[in-house]
């Protein structure tokens, strides 16, 4: 089980955070693909999102271990 945190426009689809089952082969990329399949309303935004773990951006190939807290980062719109 991991914890996924969402921001900004993704909160139109998701609550602020959810818990999600992962296996040993689940990467950031495969997680996002799973989310896109289960929540098609957010597909476009998820496709353009990055991810962060431990306050650092991570590569899409990063594997997600049990207990990890991941932050899904939609495209920035500050300024």
């Amino acid at each position: 089980m991991i914890k996924i945190n969402f921001f900004a426009g993704l909160k139109r689809t998701f609550p602020k955070s959810i818990e999600w089952e992962v296996n040993e082969n689940t990467s950031v990329n495969s997680l996002i693909e799973e989310l896109k399949s289960n929540f098609p309303d957010a597909e476009e935004l998820l496709t353009r999102s990055r991810a962060a773990i431990n306050e650092e951006f991570v590569e899409m190939a990063t594997l997600l271990k049990d207990g990890t807290e991941v932050f899904i980062i939609p495209p920035s719109s500050g300024g």
Partner: peptide
């Protein structure tokens, strides 16, 4: 670079009662 990279998002609230999360595009 800050506008492009920093994880900051604007949520605009309009006079007609709608709101919109901003995106780069």
């Amino acid at each position: 670079r800050v506008k492009q990279e920093a994880p900051i998002w604007k949520h605009e609230f309009f006079a007609d009662g709608t709101s919109e999360w901003g995106t780069n595009c």
